[in-house]
Amino acid sequence: MSAFMPIDIDIVHVARLARIDLHPDELESYRAQLGVILEHAAKVQAYDTSGVEPISHPLGFTNAFREDEPAPSLPRDEVLSAAPEARDGYFVAPPTMETE
C-alpha cells in the first residue's frame, strides 16, 4: 500500500455528499480537523497488510435469514405522529427539485 497522504480534502464535496449544509468558515475548520485526524489515520496506509483479507465481521457466520412470513406493521397514527409534517396518511416534505 503506497504511503498516500490526503493533503487536499474537498470539504465542500464531502459535506455535500453527507448532506450537511455548513457555513464556509465551519467547513474550513472541519477541513483542518479532518486533515489532522487523517494524517494520524494514514498510519493504516503505511501498515503492511499484504496477503491479508479485510474483515468486516468479528464472528464469521453466514446465512442469517428470516422466513417469508408477514408480521404486524405499526399503526399508522403512531408512525405519522412522529413526523414533522403529515397529511392524509402521508408524510409531507418540501418539493423535490432534483434527482440524483
Binding site: R87, D88, G89, Y90, F91, V92, A93, P94, P95, T96, M97, T99
Partner: peptide, 11 residues
C-alpha cells in the same frame, strides 16, 4: 417534479 410544491411520501 420541476414544478412540485410539496412531496407526499408513502413507504
Amino acid at each position: 417534479i420541476h414544478s412540485a410544491t410539496q412531496t407526499l411520501l408513502d413507504f
